[in-house]
Design a binder for these strands. Structure first.
Lengths: 123, 123
DNA sequence: GCTACCTCTGACGTCAATGTCAGTTTTCTA
DNA sequence: TAGAAAACTGACATTGACGTCAGAGGTAGC
């Protein structure tokens, strides 16, 4: 498929897809005239990249771990980094859960207080 | 306390603290000579700010919700945004949990495969 | 009162993942 | 076979949360 279709199917901009390629994260064949052609597989790959980005993992780290994701095999060095990222993700989840509690407290309190008729200046 | 102490106690840089003030997120008294003085309370405030930042909430949004966090009261408009942020945090947690599963799969596979003697090129 | 560290303002630098624009070439559709 | 739509490269712009530096003034221990 061409880049526009991949963009549409993944919800990622064309510019971003070119950037992924630039970073070595996403491969493409080229047509005679030089246009990028992607295999079906690319859709899943792009989603994976987005997921890892969302976890705060940098392009460089993703680049390092991608071959292992694909082949399912990793050298000890890489494996150690994978464990590191795992820990980081776990920590992020814990922190977000704590944030959620705080937000819930605020929401509960604010809802109740507002019902009693003491408004807070709106933004 | 002075800015250096607050920085040390919160683990946040002096520069960041000034930035928070610039954004209206953190108040300070000033000494005669113009140096910032913080009350004990500031420590908790800074931690809260960090937590909200970590949840991907922007300065502007934090600024909007902070008075409500403090007073426990929010206008409906603000309350709606709080719910919006709550949803966003929930979604982030779900996505991170999915990422965690993926990472675990990779780690499990890679560990096992490496044990069988088929290394992946290291970074 | 000296010295070493702390703090101030202001301004420019950084970094990563894009956005955006320009000028050109390819590809699809009528 | 036009003409519109999509893709190309290359380069500069953006955004947010700071880092960093310069030059000047404040503060605390001896």
């Amino acid at each position: 498929m061409r880049i526009g279709e991949l963009a549409e199917r993944t919800g990622v901009s064309v510019r971003a897809l070119r950037y992924y390629e630039e970073q070595g994260l996403l491969a493409s064949e080229r047509s005679e005239s030089g246009q990028r052609r992607y295999i079906e597989n690319a859709v899943g790959r792009v989603r994976l990249i987005q997921q890892l980005y969302a976890a705060g993992i940098s392009s460089a780290s993703i680049l390092e771990m991608l071959p292992c994701v694909v082949t399912g095999v990793a050298a000890p060095e890489v494996l150690a980094k994978l464990h590191g990222h795992r820990s980081s993700v776990v920590k992020q989840i814990e922190e977000l859960q704590e944030t959620l509690l705080q937000l819930d407290t605020v929401i509960a309190g604010a809802t109740k207080a507002y019902a009693t008729g003491v408004p807070c200046p709106p933004g």
